[in-house]
C-alpha cells in the first residue's frame, strides 16, 4: 500500500523554479490498477519516479507498506526499490550486451541471490512471458514487444509489491502495445499493484482507477 501526503517537487530549470508537483495526496491500495494521465509536463512522470523511490520529494511524506520511506538513505532506498518495486520503461532499458535471460537476471544478481535459486525462477519467468525461445538472444535480436516482455519479466523477477510502468506502449505499434498491456495487466489479475503512466486515453481507460494530472496537481480521480 502506498500513501503520499503533501508531496511537492520543484526543479530548477535555467534559474527558474518549476513546480513539477504541488502538494499531492494519494493513496493506492494493494492490488489496485491505476493509470495516471495528463499532458506532458503535468508531473505524471515525476510522481511515478517518487513512488518508485528514484526521486525524493522536497516536501511531504511517503509511506510504503506502512513504513515511512521519506527519510531513508540512498542505500536503504536502493534496497527497498530492489525488493518492492518493479520498473517498466518506454524505451525498455535493456542492457544491450546481455542476453534476454541475463537481463531478467540482473535484479536477482544485485540482490545477491544464490545462483541455484535464480535458475528455477528464471525458467518460470521465461515460461510465463513466453520468452523461452528467445532467452539467449540479445536485445538487438528481439522485436519491440519481446524487449518489453523481457523488461516486464525483469521487473517481476524479485516479486515486487508494485509495478510502475512509464509509457510502456509508447514505443510500440498499436497491436504490440495491446499485447504488452495485457501482459502487464496479468500483474493486476494476480493481485499485484500496477501503476501505468500514459497520455493515451484508450490505454488509460482500461485501468480500474484513473488519475488525471495537470500542472503538478491531481485534478481527477475516477474509479469504477
Amino acid at each position: 500500500m502506498i500513501r503520499l501526503t503533501g508531496i511537492a517537487r520543484t526543479f530548477l530549470v535555467g534559474g527558474e523554479e518549476v513546480h513539477a508537483l504541488r502538494t499531492v495526496d494519494l493513496e493506492i491500495a494493494h492490488g489496485e490498477y491505476l493509470s495516471i494521465m495528463g499532458p506532458s509536463g503535468s508531473g505524471k512522470s515525476t510522481l511515478l519516479n517518487i513512488i518508485g523511490l528514484l526521486d525524493r520529494p522536497d516536501a511531504g511524506s511517503y509511506e510504503l507498506d506502512r513504513k515511512n520511506v521519506t527519510a531513508l538513505s540512498d542505500d536503504e532506498l536502493a534496497r527497498v526499490r530492489r525488493e518492492k518495486i518493479g520498473f517498466v520503461f518506454q524505451f525498455f532499458h535493456l542492457v544491450p550486451r546481455l542476453t534476454a535471460v541475463q537481463n531478467i537476471e540482473l535484479p536477482m544478481i544485485l540482490a545477491g541471490i544464490d545462483p541455484a535459486e535464480r535458475k528455477p525462477r528464471l525458467a518460470r519467468l521465461l515460461a510465463e512471458y513466453g520468452l523461452e525461445e528467445r532467452a539467449g538472444h540479445r536485445p538487438d535480436q528481439l522485436s519491440g514487444g519481446q524487449c518489453q516482455r523481457v523488461a516486464i519479466a525483469r521487473a517481476m523477477s524479485m516479486g515486487p509489491t508494485v509495478i510502475l510502468a512509464d509509457e510502456p506502449t509508447g514505443n510500440l505499434d498499436r497491436h504490440t502495445g495491446q499485447e504488452v498491456l495485457s501482459v502487464l495487466e496479468r500483474v493486476h489479475q494476480n493481485g499485484g499493484t500496477l501503476v501505468i503512466v500514459t497520455h493515451d486515453p484508450e490505454i488509460g481507460a482500461r485501468a480500474t482507477r484513473r488519475l488525471r494530472m495537470l500542472d503538478g496537481a491531481v485534478v481527477g480521480d475516477d474509479s469504477g
Binding site: G52, A78, E83, F87, V95, M158
Partner: peptide, 16 residues
C-alpha cells in the same frame, strides 16, 4: 549513463 541509471532503478546501491 542509461545502464547505470537502470542498475540504480533495479536496486543497485552506490557501493555496488
Amino acid at each position: 549513463r542509461r545502464e547505470i541509471g537502470l542498475l540504480k532503478a533495479l536496486g543497485a546501491t552506490g557501493a555496488q
